[in-house]
């Protein structure tokens, strides 16, 4: 894995190399380099299996991290290629021509994160959700609990007490219980 990464580093501009396990490493790559790198990994290095493609929302940094996880099933090792995408212009080149299954992942990302993949087949169709009008739900700024409470009525009659506050109230009723 180490040698592979050092080889890759001579060809591509990789940063943030993390060796998570003996057989799993993560590298970060620029947008321009992604496609050549994936092609290289697929055709030259034996990482023929697209394990998954997903995103992580680093909302604090205003970044979407795309993770392309490739697997070399013969050697039993994986490499995660990470790509940082600005959150406000969330659009990325599609790789469905490299792996047809990527189209499904890209549809999901489009729907769940609002990351666009122009050219990807059926990317604008509803995938999992139907008639969704709110923020893409996997974005960190979408609050599922709030949405749930606003949309779907809870059964009434639930109430709970905080043991500490209740004890203070009960055992020291005269005290100022604001705190």
């Amino acid at each position: 894995m180490q040698t592979l990464i050092s080889q890759l580093q001579t060809r591509f501009q990789l940063s943030e190399f993390i060796l998570q396990r003996d057989n799993l490493a993560f590298v970060t790559v620029t947008r321009e380099q992604l496609r050549p790198l994936l092609l290289h990994l697929r055709d030259k290095e034996g990482f023929t299996h697209l394990v998954l493609l997903t995103a992580v929302d680093w909302i604090e940094d205003n970044i979407f991290q795309l993770t392309y996880l490739l697997g070399d099933r013969t050697a039993g090792c994986d490499i995660g290629v990470r790509l940082m995408l600005p959150r406000d212009v969330a659009s990325m080149d599609s790789i469905h021509d490299l792996w047809p299954t990527a189209a499904t992942y890209q549809r999901e990302l489009r729907e769940m994160f609002g990351i666009d993949f122009p050219e990807s087949p059926r990317v604008d169709e509803d995938f999992i959700l139907e008639g969704w009008t709110d923020l893409p739900p996997y974005r960190r700024d979408f609050d599922t609990l709030k949405y749930s409470q606003e949309s779907y009525v809870d059964r009434l009659g639930r109430e709970t007490k905080d043991p500490a506050a209740y004890m203070k109230l009960k055992l020291y009723p005269d005290e100022d219980n604001d705190g």
Binding site: E159, K161, P163, Y166, L171
Partner: peptide, 20 residues
């Protein structure tokens, strides 16, 4: 939910027992 239980023997708010 932690709820108030009243009128049950053995349950009382006291140090070490919230009574809930």
């Amino acid at each position: 939910d932690m709820v108030i239980v009243e009128g049950v023997e053995g349950i009382k708010t006291r140090p070490g027992d919230s009574g809930l």
